[in-house]
Amino acid sequence: MVPLIVILAIVVVLIIWFVVIYNSLIKLRNQVKNGWSQIDVQLKRRHDLIPNLIETVKGYMKHERETLENITTYRSQAMNASGVGEKAQAEGLLGGALGALKIAVEAYPDLKANQNFLSLQEELTSTENKISFARQSYNDQVLFYNNKIQMFPSNIVAGMFTFKEEEFFELEDPAEKAVPKVEF
């Protein structure tokens, strides 16, 4: 009788332990999903701002057709991208193109005085900040979740229910990677 109770107790404890770990994994995965949707909202917002921005600067920037065309191309590429990795790459390129525009704007004092442009620029800057802050917290959550999946003993539960590791969202800014040209 006594061994039976002991075995039963061990089984119950194991089941409880199993449920607790399973639930915590689900919670973490949902947090990662939520973190991703935070980024996604801001990426969409940036896509929505771009046509307006181009409409506003077009009249002023006669000599920057290439820069503007780049932005439009990269925007449509980014909008069609799917999956974390692919999106990160496309958005990185779009970010680089927008950075080039920001530098080009310096040569147009009239544009910099335009009230409409200034408020658009604030919106764009803020959206980019939001993307980077959302990216920080998303990556923190992914790290936490991936650690949990890899570490013993939660990796047993994760393996049984195919919890997959999530991808980090790393924006690559081509401008940062390029070797700066030094001219004297």
Binding site: Q38, Q42, E122, E123, S126, N129, K130, F133, A134, S137
Partner: peptide, 8 residues
Amino acid sequence: NIVEEMKI
């Protein structure tokens, strides 16, 4: 915008 950034 700044408050929303910090909220995120």
